[in-house]
Write a protein that binds this DNA or RNA. Sequence first.
RNA 1: UGGGGUGUAGCUCAACUGGCAGAGCGCCUGGCUGUUAACCAGGAGGUUGAAGGUUCGAGCCCUUCCGCCCCAGCCA
Length: 433
Amino acid sequence: MTEAKRVEVKDLPEQEGEVVGIGGWVETLRVHGKVAFAVVRDGTGVVQCVLARDEVGDELWARGSELTQETSVAVRGEVTREPRSPGGFELRVVELDVLGASEAYPIQPKEHGVEFLMDHRHLWLRSSVQRSVLRVRAEITHAIHDFFYREGFTRIDTPILTGSIGESAGTLFSTEYFGETAYLAQTGQLYLEAACPAFGKVYCFGPTFRAEKSKTRRHLTEFWMVEPEVAFADSEENMRLQERFVTHLVGWALDRCAGELEELERDTLPLEKVRVPFPRISYTEAVELLRSRGSEIEWGSDLGGADETMIAEEFDLPVFVYNYPRQAKAFYMKENPDDPRTVLCNDLIAPEGYGEIIGGSQREDDLDRLLARIREEKLPEEAYEWYLDLRRYGTFVHSGFGLGIERTVAWITGRSHVRELIPFPRLMNRLTP
RNA sequence: UGGGGUGUAGCUCAACUGGCAGAGCGCCUGGCUGUUAACCAGGAGGUUGAAGGUUCGAGCCCUUCCGCCCCAGCCA
């Protein structure tokens, strides 16, 4: 192919009248007797490329009119303003090279079932809805780092391979590790607590593994979680950080992903309402509310998905539910001095039925009470020796939380299942591709 | 693990009460100069998830197994 200025599709409107080159993949081809339309995607956008038989000659016509779905091509043509073309511009083809042929592409621009699409996840990524949700995910992860950088946090990368330590046993993936058993991390929190006295405000962001045999639209066995931890912050400050953080993520998505949210047909009005402060309701108040709405929940048991949805419906913002019964929560959460039946913690429930996106707490900083809780839960005390050291050498009030990325992106994009919101989901029955 | 559903062409789905296995899309052939998931005509394409049973006859009924989806639990 002769030399032509190589451009990205998103920049084509600025090149009107110029002859430019693009590289991309054929999404669809519509051939008439003497004119053909090929829609080409390059990753930055899509453009309709037009071949007129009378203009391009027999050889190019033959090549262009036999393009198949997802053939990779290099196209050279004139950028033309054209109201009949989607996007208002098209490329009038002068030259076209097939770079990589594509025979019988499995995914049609029609409906498919979930299993078929997941079996072809490596190709499904090219589809417009998948591109949009994964673009939003990428922007959200960027917004996460932006927020914590600007707030003065230091990023701490916590290990993925760990010894036996975490929230509880029985939900960990294990693997052989030079004759020992290693476990895949289900939280970075305990390591962050160790980094806290070194840096004050820290966070980690990475994959998390849960060997639960969960089969719901809200669960993955491998998911990404961002976890901040703040020295000298109590539960109250923790919730204020959470609402500022979530507001930042939503605002970032509205600013930078308007096109994607439109493509996804997401009603952005509920998102535009998101601002601090978020409504708060104590666990005890939540139980009273639920019982007044006909639920038979007993004080002491954890809230289920239906309970969360019922609470979310009372508000049009994310809502904090705080201070749960201690038997429903993890050993490291600090006892509530005003009501020792409960611990200083909170969940954040997203609106519109998307459920829990954050779990957070103030941590137990008293050595004796923490030790008592470890023994109460019958956890292996030896494994927690280094964690207990943090209470022996300059213990301090501190709090933190974990926000699930896929659930947050599900809410922001309005998608119903988290499996679409990570490029290659790992589920109980899905390890490939 | 428990409850509910489902499995038919490459894909998405029909098939009445148990009675000749079908459509749309995709693919192949031909037609068409402005399509927008193009349209029109023709063609190829099936071990009805697997095994067994009932019946003159099973995609449909029965038994067992397998896959998938939804809900619950666990949590983010």
